[in-house]
Design a protein around this nucleic acid. Sequence first.
DNA 1: CGGCTGCTTGAGGACTATCAAATTAGGTGG
DNA 2: CCACCTAATTTGATAGTCCTCAAGCAGCCG
Lengths: 251, 251
Amino acid sequence: MSSQPPFPRPAPTVLSDDGDELQFCSTCAFSHACLSQGMDKSALRDLHVLVEHVGPFHAGDTLFREGDPFDAIAAVRAGCVKTRVIDRDGREHVLGFHFPGEIIGLNAIAGDRYPCDAIALDTVMLCRFSFPKISVLATRVPGLQRELFRLLSRDIGRASLLAGDWSAEQRMAAFLVGLSRRLAARGFSATRFQLSMSRTDIANYLRLAPETVSRVLRRLQDEGVLAVDRRDVELRDPDALEALAAPILRE
Amino acid sequence: MSSQPPFPRPAPTVLSDDGDELQFCSTCAFSHACLSQGMDKSALRDLHVLVEHVGPFHAGDTLFREGDPFDAIAAVRAGCVKTRVIDRDGREHVLGFHFPGEIIGLNAIAGDRYPCDAIALDTVMLCRFSFPKISVLATRVPGLQRELFRLLSRDIGRASLLAGDWSAEQRMAAFLVGLSRRLAARGFSATRFQLSMSRTDIANYLRLAPETVSRVLRRLQDEGVLAVDRRDVELRDPDALEALAAPILRE
DNA sequence: CGGCTGCTTGAGGACTATCAAATTAGGTGG
DNA sequence: CCACCTAATTTGATAGTCCTCAAGCAGCCG
């Protein structure tokens, strides 16, 4: 699964234009946000016409690769996507993890090529939006333009969150609290969830050694804050975690 | 200069509509970029009508403050602007430094308030763009929308640059190389320039202790890479610096 | 069952922060 | 113009956090 074109089309994606289809895709949360930005039903219909549902992808599949020509952003509809770059020395740098409802590809707009790889960590479904088309639509639909500006702007702030010189424990806490909130916002449990990424990926993302991740998790478990069993996590004392993460999350 | 409203208006800013004014303001480089995105002269004129030239501000002046209602982005026309947040423990976190031609306030679009403070480090002049107005214009002028998307997207990538776990020497090299390039792009010398920010600000921005900044600068000077005299810097061996910074700048 | 990969645990060392103090620069008033 | 005061910067000594290296362990799949 390595040299397929970016966002390979599945079997011809014919979008039905009925209420069901609209309702279904609104689970991608992008439409919801657009609605709240003042888009009306007809504009929403225009938006859905230019959506392609792609997937499923499987763990390890590449969704797009650094250097691929940029032509689309995508909303994660199911699963978890890792974005990363490989530097000249062959070292990986994990940029982020993306869950259902979140958009990938926004950092590609500045250039004409994707600046990073996107890799499925489990079974992933996407909603693919042609960027040229959505741009044109955005000129007609102010609510859509506003939502795009909002998404882009929010990612600027997010990117600088982990940039501080926080302790390993604070980073881990912020990571877990962030995960918990994002999953909870999609209707999943806020206190019990699975880590779809490896310890190595977490470590890389948090700029820690894998050994440190392991040690911090053990410490938090010994303190009764967490219960960890392989990739299953239970937040036993969310308040304590929030307190640790507070300076990073700025609250 | 502490409790003035954000972007205080100077004496009534009447913009002449003649060629001179257009030419002058194009030094803010925003217009240049818009032109290259396919905007025509008449659109550019529309853009300039909604610009307010504000300033001068002086070192230490606050341009906007975290929590101020967001209504405008601004292009730095002269001087250097620091953006920062103060966390609950009263500790400062420098988010970035912004030079002529660069835009501040983009990270405020996601909310209705500025998420950080902006502070003049020396004598600063701004071009202020009402965001509601520029948004409306962007729906009519695709080139402007494209440029805004591009600026936002680029900042996402920039924000994650320094997030890695780089050594103090690498961070400092990347900082200096970045400064050199940005200044060179505006026609200033790429090898000799002034640091408009204090050591403490540099340290804070790079997530280092001020003492470490001092030591790294000395080391680089002893190695003949730099010549530092207070806030004057000369890059004596730009290639060596580039080599140090390469993994951070991804080249 | 054996190999493999991913995770955990332990010991030692490197880098940078912290603390303390000397030095220098800049601004102010005489 | 100079002396003084304050803040910024530099320098030195020490300590802490986290990385690196190395080995042991556990789940997963053929």
